[in-house]
Design a protein around this nucleic acid. Sequence first.
DNA 1: GCACATGATCTCGTTTTGAGACTAATGCGA
DNA 2: TCGCATTAGTCTCAAAACGAGATCATGTGC
Lengths: 155, 155
Amino acid sequence: MKREPLARSPKSGNRFLDSAAQPLRIVSVEEPTIAEAVLNAGFDMSNCPVRDVMDHIGGKWSSLMLLVLSTKPHRFGELKRAVPDISQRMLTQTLRDLQRDGYISRHVFATVPPSVEYRLTPLGESLMPALRALVAWAVDNHPRIAEARQTFDAA
Amino acid sequence: MKREPLARSPKSGNRFLDSAAQPLRIVSVEEPTIAEAVLNAGFDMSNCPVRDVMDHIGGKWSSLMLLVLSTKPHRFGELKRAVPDISQRMLTQTLRDLQRDGYISRHVFATVPPSVEYRLTPLGESLMPALRALVAWAVDNHPRIAEARQTFDAA
DNA sequence: GCACATGATCTCGTTTTGAGACTAATGCGA
DNA sequence: TCGCATTAGTCTCAAAACGAGATCATGTGC
């Protein structure tokens, strides 16, 4: 259990507005509250869906799983072989989290040995364009990132 | 040990499928390898840029930082206030990782007390459209996810 | 019997994250 | 002048997440 820590308690709340009461001295630019920043980004912070969603699909294996499942449904063992360096433990957990959030569905076949198939739900499908866009960006800009990293590490 | 509290050592920074050290096992006969799956998704797995990039911008705070910085440059303290529930330690680390990968730049002003400003680089800016698309999706679909989660937890 | 394959869980140890105290030089009020 | 706040971080320690491997139940082929 204890699968909850990922879901931040709502009352650990973000008080974005108290910053408005803090005038700055040195660099006199007034700062936007998180509410503003986030509104500029195009969403409402009131119940912070961003972190709620991003923390899940941004998990170490989640996006990779979704990507693999977007090609066709996979069984547990297929996924394990498709992503060789995921531990069985994390595979189980990632799949369950994805299922819990409604991105994928799980179908058990009472064969012997039993087999379990995972596939994207419509909700999961609807995420793919945005996810692929991010992946495409990653591919295009990976060299630049590698270069920046090298430069940084040299210093 | 390997405390290295803040500076992630360059060598440990690449623990995701180091393509050189751990070649993909193309063992499966009947199912698509990760390489195939990922090629279908539109990129080359040979040096796995996806996890390399996704694991960073998909980090717990990275995307939020980028989002906030996309509105305007921020100082350290501003960021801290803008995202009240990030610890100073994680803020420092997130910013340094982002800087290392070339998403943001860091400018120190020798005022007193000293101030440090962070801002998006052109590379960071170029990521924003894709990131915003993901955020937009998150906002649009958050209710569905919450519902799925509730349904799942009920069972 | 015995090994094998399935999907999943348990235990253990390592890595990453979180909470909070602590640093430096200086400005401010009392 | 004492004390306290400011700046951007660092340090320590505990908690959480993660990884590797063993284990489980069960039926098939040998």
